[in-house]
Each structure stands twice: as C-alpha cells, then as structure tokens.
C-alpha cells in the first residue's frame, strides 16, 4: 500500500485548469483495466484518487487527466516532465467490457468524466470487431472546457462510430451543439435492445442520463456508472468513500446502474 515513485514523462494542457500527464508505470507496469484509478501523491502535500485516462494497450505508461480543484490536484498539475510523483494502484472495479462483447457501446460523459471513459474507447477500438456501434455523447461546460478535442474529432471519422459533443454555452465560433448532454440523445443512433451504456460525469448529470436511457428503452441492467466519493486509502479501510452499503473504492468506482440508482437519488447519503 506504499506509493511508488514514478517519473513524469509528459504534461499536456487540456483546458484552463485541466492537464493530462503521463508517468512511467512503476516497475514497468502491471497493466490496468479501463475505469480503474490510482492514488497519486505529491509528497508533503497529499494524495488524491485520479482516474487512469490512457490506453490499456500501453501498460508501461500511466496517463492521468487531472483538474486542479484543491491543494493536491493543484500540486499535481504543476509537476513538470522529469519530476517525481507517488503512485499507488491501480484500484477498483472496471467497465465490464469483456462481458459486453457483441453489443453496441454507448458512452455518455460529462466534463472531466470523460477521463475514466477514454480507456474504454481505446479498448473497444483495439478490438473493433468484437463490438457493434460505438457512440460517444460528451457534454462540457464550454468549448474551452472540452477534453481531447482533436482525438474526438479523429474518432468521429471511424466507421460505425458516432461522436457527438455538446456544450452548455458556446460562443459564436462554436458551430457544434449547445445544450445539456441529454439533448444529444435525439441524434444518437443505437439499438437500445443490443446496447450497453457506460456513464460518467457529475452525479446529478448521471441521474438525468439514467432517466433518459430508460426513456429510450434501455434496461438499467445494461447501464454502468462510475461514482466519485472522498477517498483516502482506496482499499476499503478509511471509510470515506461509503455510498450506503458500498465502498466506492473497492466495490466501484464502476457500478451496475441498477445497484446504485436508488442510492444516487438519496440526498446527502
């Protein structure tokens, strides 16, 4: 459970407050599954849970997309290539992609919630024949807040792939969709009967998305969500990440939606 020192290889600015950085996987890397997270440390400042946003097909490097929202994430995003951070993990339950072979994959992401879903996209693209359509709906606050814009644009040209993006507010130079992420569903082409949906974003957004998915004829049993809670240990000992009967760190962060939908609707649970 001790962190391992890992060297930062590259840092890339995504938005005003969000950076993607790549570190050498400790010990050459033991691999990770899409949807898992690590505990990242800046020694002397603290530790925070951060989703892995890189390609599971490249286990020798770990990629994280970090938004600066507190002291630890602020310290993380100011690391420069060559500097060291502490890494523990990977931890947690992943998107059950192996079990979803043969299905269309619908990914719904909001804001920084795209980060833990990007490995799922890489995974499906590496095994394209194993899956049907790949549909990605992504909402961000504004065009300046969108992650991975070039990559999303590149993916949109792939066959059987639909990438739809939206922003809550756009300026005159934004010719894309404006409206909350649920307003994209009317343009998404997927067969509800043979689709599995993977959802990550702010909890309130996920609640609206779950409702929308049900309206579109999807069964909750085909829907997975990634939850966020305060975490200190990532292995179920610190008690911080409890969500009713679940520990988000070890029972999640990815949950079947049917297991947590009721809990998500309970205020201040």
């Amino acid at each position: 459970m001790l962190p391992q020192a890992s060297r930062v290889i590259a840092v890339e600015r995504e938005t005003r407050d969000t950076f993607t950085f790549t570190v050498a996987a400790p010990g050459g890397g033991s691999g990770f599954a899409p949807g898992q997270f690590s505990m990242l440390s800046v020694f002397g400042v603290g530790e925070a849970p951060i989703s892995i946003s890189g390609d599971p097909g490249e286990p020798d490097r770990l990629v994280y997309t970090v938004r600066s929202v507190g002291p630890v994430t602020q310290a993380l995003v100011t690391r420069r290539p060559g500097e060291w951070i502490g890494v523990r993990g990977p931890f947690g339950a992943s998107w059950p992609l192996a079990a979803l072979r043969g299905k269309d994959i619908l990914i719904v992401a909001g804001g920084i919630g795209l980060a833990p879903l990007r490995p799922a996209v890489y995974y499906v693209l590496r095994r394209r024949g194993d899956y049907g359509r790949l549909v990605l709906l992504y909402g961000a606050r504004s065009p300046q807040d969108m992650l991975y814009r070039k990559q999303l644009s590149a993916w949109s040209y792939l066959p059987d792939t639909q990438i739809l993006t939206t922003v809550d507010y756009g300026g005159l130079s934004w010719r894309g969709h404006v409206g909350v992420v649920t307003t994209l569903f009317r343009y998404a082409r997927f067969d509800a009967q043979r689709t599995a949906a993977l959802v990550c974003g702010p909890e309130v957004m996920m609640r609206f998305v779950l409702r929308e998915l049900e309206t579109r004829g999807m069964a909750l049993s085909d829907v997975y969500v990634s939850m966020e809670r305060n975490m200190k240990c990532a292995v179920g000992f610190c008690g911080h990440c409890q969500l009713g009967p679940h520990f988000v760190c070890k029972d999640g962060p990815v949950f079947p939606a049917a297991r947590v939908k009721r809990l998500m609707e309970r205020y201040e649970l």
């Binding site: 440390s41 020694f43 002397g44 400042v45 603290g46 530790e47 200190k232 240990c233 000992f237 610190c238 008690g239 911080h240």
Partner: peptide
C-alpha cells in the same frame, strides 16, 4: 469505528516529507 484520514507533512526545504 475504524475511519481514518491521512496527512502529509514536510520540512521547509522539501527534502523530507512524511505521511
């Protein structure tokens, strides 16, 4: 009750830190 938190400390030079 088993809940715990963690806290990092460091000296002013940053050469030594503890959790």
């Amino acid at each position: 009750c088993f809940c715990v938190t963690v806290e990092d400390t460091s000296d002013v030079t940053g050469s030594h830190a503890e959790r």
